[in-house]
Simulated scan of single mutants.
Amino acid sequence: MTLRAERVTRTAGGRLILDGVTVTPAPGGVTGLLGPNGSGKSTLLRLLSGVLAPASGVVTLDGRPLPELRRREVARRVAVVEQQADTLVELTVADVVRLGRIPHRRAWSAPSAADERAVGDALRRTGLTDRAAQPWHTLSGGERQRVQIARALAQEPRELLLDEPTNHLDIQHQLDLLDLVTGLGVTTIVALHDLNLAAAYCDRLVVLRGGRVTAAGTPREVLTAERVAEVYGVRVEVTHPDAGDRPHLRVLGSLSRKGS
């Protein structure tokens, strides 16, 4: 068992953001959340992390509703990487990564040897060891994103939630990041815009549109030309290189420009 959302609904300002959404990721697998801007992906991730509460439905961890669990208990299990993170406090890269160890430490206690090993390993795995002493505010957007990934790794989670983690990253670091995440063996739910990255790295996909699930299944089942046209309003050519199950999409143009 792992983290699940069952028929969750969320409203904001009188507007329905999520409408009866169910997500049941396989333990240890990678589930991709797809959908255009405003479809509810970020809100769903916040519900799964416990930052927001659903108006109806329930989010469970190992079958227990999140409100029944202590916040520290959830924080030890579930790590979150949001689209943007910032701080006004003067922190080094290593300081930011150490924040991932807070759920594992007693209040006001100094970092243990185990904490420092976890921090060092997270820096190494994200290629940031030589940046450990660098001030956070001097980093580029892509570098900051990698530091947030390192912070999440230092937390040693069993569930990992990522909201557009490849934003601000160049192509090499996008691939390196997703290679790292998919190799962790933890239950991962990741919101992505790039359909080809989702097809290449996710075991299952959930497509949101207008706050509702319009499709769920394997990349081959979900990423059809007809569905991409319906959800995103673009024409694509879908191929399956080497007769594999993972499709590749080539964008042909916007449906609104068809025949122009």
Rank of each mutant, 00 (worst) to 15 (best):
T2F: 11
L3W: 06
T9E: 11
G13F: 08
I17V: 15
T22L: 12
P25D: 13
A26T: 15
L34F: 05
L47H: 07
L48P: 07
S49K: 09
L52W: 14
A55H: 15
V58C: 14
V58I: 14
V59F: 12
T60A: 14
D62W: 11
R64E: 15
E68Y: 08
E68W: 11
R70V: 04
A79P: 03
A79E: 04
A79L: 06
V81L: 06
A85W: 04
T87R: 05
T87W: 05
E90Y: 08
E90G: 07
A94S: 10
G100F: 00
R101Y: 00
I102C: 02
P103D: 03
A110Y: 12
P111A: 08
R117C: 02
V119L: 04
T126V: 07
G127C: 08
L128E: 00
T129M: 10
R131K: 13
A132C: 10
A133Y: 09
A133S: 15
W136T: 01
H137D: 14
L139H: 02
S140H: 05
Q145S: 01
Q145H: 03
R151V: 00
Q155D: 00
Q155L: 01
E156D: 13
P157Y: 01
E159S: 11
E159N: 11
L161K: 03
L161E: 02
N167T: 10
Q172H: 15
Q174H: 13
L175S: 11
L175E: 11
L177M: 15
L178S: 10
L178E: 10
T182D: 14
T182W: 13
L184M: 13
V190M: 07
V190R: 01
A191I: 02
L192V: 05
D194G: 06
L197K: 03
L197S: 04
A199N: 04
A199F: 01
A199L: 02
L205D: 06
G210R: 10
G210V: 11
P219G: 02
V228N: 09
G233Q: 10
E237I: 03
P241C: 05
D242C: 04
R246I: 10
H248P: 05
H248F: 15
V251A: 14
L252I: 11
L255A: 09
L255M: 13
S256N: 13
S260G: 14
